[in-house]
Design a protein around this nucleic acid. Structure first.
Lengths: 226, 226
DNA sequence: CCAAAAGTGTTCATCGTACACCCATGA
DNA sequence: TCATGGGTGTACGATGAACACTTTTGG
């Protein structure tokens, strides 16, 4: 039997928090199709690399971010027949939560790379709007029952910084005192790591990510929210 | 630029409940590689069909199950270089929760198809053990915060039948009275649909699936369970 | 009448939330 | 000593678990 062959690509939904709002990494496409349009970082999987390795490689090539494997999480695979005008391309999307604060470095296939606030995104190339929406919803949902919020915070971080991740993602204010208790009451969520003085008020305890991955009980947002 | 081409496959983790235990659909491979070994139903995506449509088609071809689209949920994509001895094959796995009770019908590529209890599975072909484990964990987890349990129950079903889904998946007994209240207290989880007399005791109210998809609050299992 | 299955009411501990209050620093 | 931000104590309503009790059928 002759097997149908097709191209396999990876697309990356890379999120970070800048000035209290969620931002998405976008590149400007330097080659057709959609030349000049903003798009998610990504590219084709090569013959001799796993899909996951392709995601790591493209992340570094197109944005300059050099993260370790634990920061990449597979989102979903998009396999409609017509999703790419060049022909049959199946794309595996990954979600990346970055603590980086610096500017992005564009790669060879892109004429530019930058962070963009998620509440005023331009239309993106291909089906990247859909992929982005799914990535955002996944990130918001995972804050509830995993410790991924720590990935947004460059260590060491204060409790207020960790809280601002939830507030930025969910768009609602949280009670600082109860939030602190919930986090500290979840074993392995964070571990203490010094004290930061020099601010205006009382010095804050510093933390870094603990070894726990999931939260029981979860930190829940209201069901009827965007 | 010449794009690397590869084959794309779908694999199906199809679960149902038989006599109070979770069962997985397996086929015996009728062609090499792994000829004669049990494997998940699945096959290659054709040039003119979406990955999703390929999953629907293979499900019907290899097991005889003709389900509608809402019963299929994408699980994950497996893209290691060496996962298939025939060459480079990227596989998209789907999770299917079936209420069917009848025997499975093997298709052309398989010499047999049957249900198999998940607590005594044989070693499977390719990386299908891994795929199965991920599918099982996903199904167990989704019982907590979605209404997918109703997919296991041929409508109309009793509250006891719905409860047995949770008990089979989680392996623990649940309090029938509190369970009933939790389900009925979740708007849209189930709707009444008659009464079933003829059993040994008091007739049970019958239900069918409501229109709600997610549960707030979730029905939680203990964090420290298998 | 008894066993079995379905469903209701009640109690009690636990958890989330709201908020008053205390602590430590810089200006 | 005051403004600012960090952290603790506590009261109250909501939720979940356990279980006694009632209802409705078949034998």
């Amino acid at each position: 039997m002759k097997l149908p062959q097709m191209a396999v690509a990876v697309d990356l939904v890379v999120l970070t928090i800048i000035d209290g709002t969620l931002n998405l990494a976008l590149v400007d496409r330097g080659i057709p199709p959609f030349k000049g349009s903003p798009a998610l970082p990504g590219g084709f999987v090569l013959d001799d690399e796993s899909v996951f390795d392709a995601a790591l490689r493209e992340l570094k090539e197109e944005t300059g971010l050099d993260l370790n494997a634990s920061h990449l999480e597979q989102l979903a695979t998009f396999g409609d027949v017509d999703r790419d005008p060049r022909g049959r391309v199946v794309s595996v999307a990954y979600l990346v939560l970055a603590a980086e604060l610096g500017a992005l470095q564009a790669g060879s296939d892109a004429s530019g790379a930058r962070w963009h606030p998620i509440d005023q995104l331009p239309p993106l190339a291909f089906d990247h709007d859909t992929i982005t929406a799914i990535g955002l919803e996944r990130a918001k949902a995972k804050l509830e029952y995993t410790t991924i919020a720590t990935r947004f915070c460059p260590p060491p971080f204060t409790m207020a910084e960790l809280r601002s991740v939830y507030e930025a993602a969910w768009g609602i204010p949280l009670d600082a005192r109860n939030f602190s208790r919930k986090v500290l009451g979840s074993p392995g969520f964070v571990v203490e790591d010094g004290i930061r003085a020099g601010g205006r008020g009382r010095p804050a305890t510093l933390y870094r990510a603990g070894d726990a991955l999931s939260l029981h009980p979860p930190i829940m947002r209201d069901p009827d929210l965007p």
